[in-house]
Structures are given as C-alpha cells and as structure tokens.
Design a protein around this nucleic acid. Structure first.
Length: 283
DNA sequence: GCCCAGGAGTGTG
DNA sequence: CACACTCATGGG
C-alpha cells in the first residue's frame, strides 16, 4: 500500500535518527524502515513529500504516519518562540526539520523505562528482542511492539534473558500496574498531574516521566533531562544542579515548547560529541 | 580492560 | 530537598 504525505518542514534523518525513537532504521537508499503500530512502514522523503509504503496496509495509514510525525505542530511558530532565546536563535533554523515524534503511550512507557542507564544501540536491541519474542509478526523479521496483555505472560527471568538486566523488573511490574484504563485516564490530565502519576509507576522517575509525557502523551512543555541535556545546559547556560532546578530553569526559559528546545539541545549536544560542531551560541 | 550509557530506587543528612 | 550509593550489562 502506497501513498504520499506533505509535511513541511521535515527532515526525516534528523527526526527518526536523533534518538527519540528506537525502532526506525535507515536503509542504504536513504529511506527509513520500521514498525509503526501494526504496520511495517517505509518512509522516503523527497523535499516536502513523504512517500509512504506500508504492509499489510490499512485505511487510515495517512493518519497513522501524520500523527507519528506530528504534522499538527506549527514549526514556524515554535521556532519563532524558541528563537527569542539568544543562545538558541542562531542554530535553530538548521533544525527546523527536526520534529518531535508521537509514540504509542504503552510502547513509549516501556521503551523509556528500559532506556535507563543504557546507550541507544542497546535500547534498540532490548526492544527488538522483546518484539521478536512477545510481539506479533508483521513481516519476516519485523514484529509489533508487545501489547501489555502479551508481555504480562513473560516471567522476570524471561525478560532478563532479553538483555534487560535489572530493567526486567520494571517491565514486569509495569505490565501489572498499568491497565487499559490507566493510559486513557492519564490522557485527560494536565502535564503536571500526568507527570506526577507517571512517577508513581515502577521504573518511572523524573526523566522517564518527562519522556513519556513528551513523546507518548504529546505534552510539548515537557523537558526531559538526561546526561546530554545536563551537559548542554551547563555549557550553554552555565546552569547546574538538581533535576528540579534544571526543569524549572527550562520551563522559565523555553515555556510551553520546552520539549522542542530539549530536542534541539539534545541533537546539538550529540552532534558536538561526534564532530565537535555546535549550532548554538556558546558563552 | 576501561568508561559510559536518553536513571531509578533507596537510604541518609 | 539534595546528595551518595547501588543496580546489571552491552557498546564503543
């Protein structure tokens, strides 16, 4: 099944390759392939057009992809707002195609609970192993993310054997503390309430709660702080300290689009680690 | 071999 | 609330 979408501005390489998602893979020809909901999807960008190829195909495929890439976001407005920050102003134009992604709430919750104290290649591996063992087969080697119901049948030992380490307990307990109604109820809460309730869940602390708020529940004011963001804030803004202190700094500085600021800073910091390049103004 | 990883949980000051 | 320590393991 094929179709085309118009989403602009968009840079698929930045959006799907920056580390906010764990299952997309860049192909030799430059396209991106991966599971999205119950579909195996291949995305290929040609200027403002995204060619979508999906198997087995479904009627609302366009909505599925548009939602994932957050077509709804008004990037010019977001950039205009964040551009008021003098440190960020210089570099953000180059990042206009980097869009926050919308991930399924359950998948996002488990994925980022597994993402604690592990690097991205390993996180991807953990998730692929889980999908292969407990997901549904879509193609030869592509599997859906496991449902709560299915993953619930796995023992802690089995989960640990998927390479999760001590995170096996998180996954195992999440399957028991979250039911269908939980996520639906959380959707209705404001960011602060959502954040607090997420933090009650096993394996969900400050950072994971903010990642799930941002990528799973689409709360753009959320500002997840990991080691990369800590470094970025320290270097660019000379601000250090507790999570609470940094979060309050970000809320004050970046406002209700703090999530995009976070993604820009994260992208820039990792780029800098690889190339020494820096898009933003350093003090 | 070594250091680090999109941290959380727990106990202490 | 802030800090220190532990947790299990693969990737670069």
């Amino acid at each position: 099944m094929r179709l085309e979408l118009r989403i602009a501005p968009l840079d698929l390489d930045k959006t799907l390759g920056c580390g906010q998602t764990f299952r997309w893979r860049r192909q030799q020809d430059g396209s991106w392939a991966g599971p999205l909901s119950d579909q195996f999807v291949v995305l290929c960008q040609e200027d403002d057009v995204v060619h979508v190829d999906a198997f087995p195909g479904r009627a609302d495929l366009d909505d599925l992809v548009a939602e994932h890439l957050r077509e709804c976001d008004d990037i010019p407005r977001i950039q205009k707002e964040l551009g008021r920050d003098p440190r960020m102003a210089r570099g953000i134009a180059e990042l206009e195609g980097l869009r926050i992604v919308k991930i399924d709430e359950w998948e996002c919750l488990v994925s980022f609970a597994l993402a604690t104290y592990a690097n991205i290649p390993r996180i991807s591996r953990m998730i692929e192993t889980l999908a292969r063992n407990y997901g549904e087969r879509i193609t030869e080697d592509i599997y859906t993310f496991p449902t709560r119901k299915r993953l619930r049948k796995a023992t802690v030992r089995e989960l640990a054997r998927c390479g999760l380490g001590y995170r096996a307990d998180y996954a195992h307990e999440l399957c028991r503390e979250v039911d269908e109604g939980t996520l639906e109820r959380l959707k209705k809460l404001n960011y602060q309430q959502l954040r607090e309730e997420l933090r009650e869940l096993p394996g969900v602390g400050n950072k994971v709660a903010d990642c799930v708020s941002l990528f799973g529940f689409g709360r753009l004011e959320s500002f997840p702080i990991d080691v990369w963001i800590q470094r970025a804030l320290a270097r660019l803004y000379r601000v250090k300290g507790s999570y609470k202190r940094l979060r309050e700094f970000a809320a004050e500085r970046f406002g209700h689009y703090a999530g995009y600021a976070q993604e820009y800073l994260y992208y820039n910091e990792r780029l800098r680690a690889r190339n020494g390049a820096c898009l933003f103004l350093e003090q």
